[in-house]
Design a protein around this nucleic acid. Sequence first.
DNA 1: ACAAAGCGTACCGATTTAGTACCATTTCGC
DNA 2: GCGAAATGGTACTAAATCGGTACGCTTTGT
Lengths: 156, 156
Amino acid sequence: MLRISKLTDYGLLATVYLAGKHGEIVSAREIAGFYHLPVPMITKVLKTLHAGGLVNSHRGVGGGYSFDADAEEVTLGNLIDALEGPWDLVECESTDDNGHATCAIRIACPSRRFMFGINRAIKGAFEQVTLGDLARGVIPAPIIDKSVLRAAQRTQ
Amino acid sequence: MLRISKLTDYGLLATVYLAGKHGEIVSAREIAGFYHLPVPMITKVLKTLHAGGLVNSHRGVGGGYSFDADAEEVTLGNLIDALEGPWDLVECESTDDNGHATCAIRIACPSRRFMFGINRAIKGAFEQVTLGDLARGVIPAPIIDKSVLRAAQRTQ
DNA sequence: ACAAAGCGTACCGATTTAGTACCATTTCGC
DNA sequence: GCGAAATGGTACTAAATCGGTACGCTTTGT
């Protein structure tokens, strides 16, 4: 259905909140309260974000999470990668545990070339939006540059 | 999981195939055979595409589907709109049958602004890829133009 | 010691997806 | 006319995913 999961959505919210209080230690309870979301949901995504190395965690009383990195160096792509795990817009780009394509007709599939391109385009778009942009409420306008297609095609 | 459904995928394949035989009447059986996909699946998406006015249908013996429009005038956005129906990257942008936002905390939700932007960015990227590009196997490279963000923000 | 907070895992109901089945309708060729 | 080929429309099922919750463990400040 071409939609990011709510968990990922919550993760973006939480990260933006943390980035807005750069360096401060903030509890999951506070973030959940701010967005009127269930605490267990927020804790879940914060755990994921911490596992992905995007936020720091502080255990014990007075603990919580903090964002200490440079918001301009973290991209929406990084966040979605951490929150959604490995993903591809179309399945024939996915690979199993052994690195083999899960699509049985991969070689013969004439769609592979352009699906690959679309996939790259979306990921590229995500890479060009930084956490700083999100925190500032930036509304990006995408421009597809078709002039580079030949070079890109050769890399296929 | 941020993935288009297989049905949509099949729909794109079918449309590309039809566009490659511009004006010709092609049966669902032929398209399904070409891609090694089940015939009922292809017929399903072709019905959807026809309902969306993107392809023409021809009933009876010797019938099938044809693409008669200009491939440069049909965008990936048009195709996905027809195949996926109304969609939004995040749910708080969705509306119910009465046009009301389905997200209860819509007004208070601080994420709405930038989610809206991301949503627009993805849709905009899809609008800039034509069926002709897909048929040629173009690999587009997206460029996010942040310079327009102020104007866009004011429209919120 | 106690309480606050994160860590990890597992579970459940609801929704969505992928695929199939069935029958009605249209149209061509004989 | 009749039958075969093809689309039109609907409905169904099994599997996967999603959203949310529960529960117990570990860490740490007071």
